[in-house]
């Protein structure tokens, strides 16, 4: 535990001296503020074009940001020799990776908090505020996106040799999960027999943290009925506390799994090196 916190603290210090963190912070703050000001409503609440657009902005920006910052931090350790130095100490691989994860999560959450803090405060001052429920929901949505994609980022960083490779991987994962996802699903599922489409689609949602978090947010925002009669029982179920519990469990499995695989690969590399 002490190892994790030491590595985490080191990661936080490194993170806050990384100019990338500040450029992403500025980008996120600027865009969330711009979106809030562009819309005409006095209060942002419920599932409307404003909140729909904000969900999409967050989905475009946060996973990419997390993937790049996370995988860069891990590959930088390899490139700059940080890991070589640390591996001379009695430090477990998992403790090291969880320390990285915790530290990076803290840095990313500060970036998200500054964006939301600014939107919240300025929104109220300028008369275009979020409703309290929507504000909380958006914040939770962003936190979950960061935590889920950070696991994937650490895994990607483990797989990559240097930052260039990490950049390629990060953008590819982002494109696959965010931009290309509907296209891929429609293309692949079109081949399947009709009755298989819905079950396979639902199963695949659990394999995409971005879609999972997005649907959770839309349903919690009261927009579940837009999914139509096919998802009637599904939506009713998510709205209950049990749905939230299941979502949290799936998130934990996602993070544990990506970190576990990263740890396994890292350990193997350590022994082979």
């Amino acid at each position: 535990m002490r190892h994790i916190s030491t590595i985490a603290l080191r990661e936080v210090k490194l993170g806050f001296r990384n100019p990338w963190a500040y450029s992403f912070m500025a980008l996120f703050a600027l865009f969330s503020l711009a979106l809030l000001l562009v819309q005409s409503q006095q209060q942002v609440g419920g599932y409307t074009s404003t909140t729909g657009t904000m969900i999409n902005l967050i989905l475009y920006l946060l996973p990419l940001m997390t993937l790049l910052l996370g995988s860069f931090s891990v590959t930088a350790e390899k490139e700059e020799g940080g890991w070589h130095l640390l591996s001379t100490y009695p430090l477990g691989t998992m403790a090291y990776l969880w320390g990285k994860y915790t530290g990076l999560a803290a840095v990313l959450l500060v970036i998200v908090s500054i964006g939301f803090g600014l939107s919240g405060v300025l929104g109220v001052l300028l008369g275009k505020a979020f409703s309290a429920g929507t504000f909380g929901l958006f914040f939770a949505f962003s936190v979950f996106l960061v935590l889920l994609f950070l696991g994937i980022a650490v895994l990607a960083g483990t797989l990559c040799r240097n930052r260039w490779q990490a950049l390629t991987y990060g953008v590819a994962i982002w494109f696959f999960y965010i931009l290309g996802w509907p296209t891929l699903l429609i293309a692949v599922l079109g081949v399947l027999p009709y009755l298989w489409i819905k079950p396979v689609l639902v199963a695949l949602i659990f394999l995409n943290p971005a879609e999972l978090t997005r649907l959770m947010t839309v349903v919690k925002m009261g927009g579940g009925s837009i999914l139509g009669p096919d998802y009637y029982s599904w939506v009713g179920w998510i709205q209950q506390p049990l749905g939230t519990a299941l979502f949290l469990a799936v998130c934990l499995v996602w993070i544990a799994l990506s970190m576990g695989i990263a740890g396994f690969l890292w350990e193997r590399g350590r022994r082979h090196a």
Partner: peptide, 11 residues
Amino acid sequence: PAFQVLFQSPG
């Protein structure tokens, strides 16, 4: 109809 789940999906 099952594809309605992609409503407003960012992609």
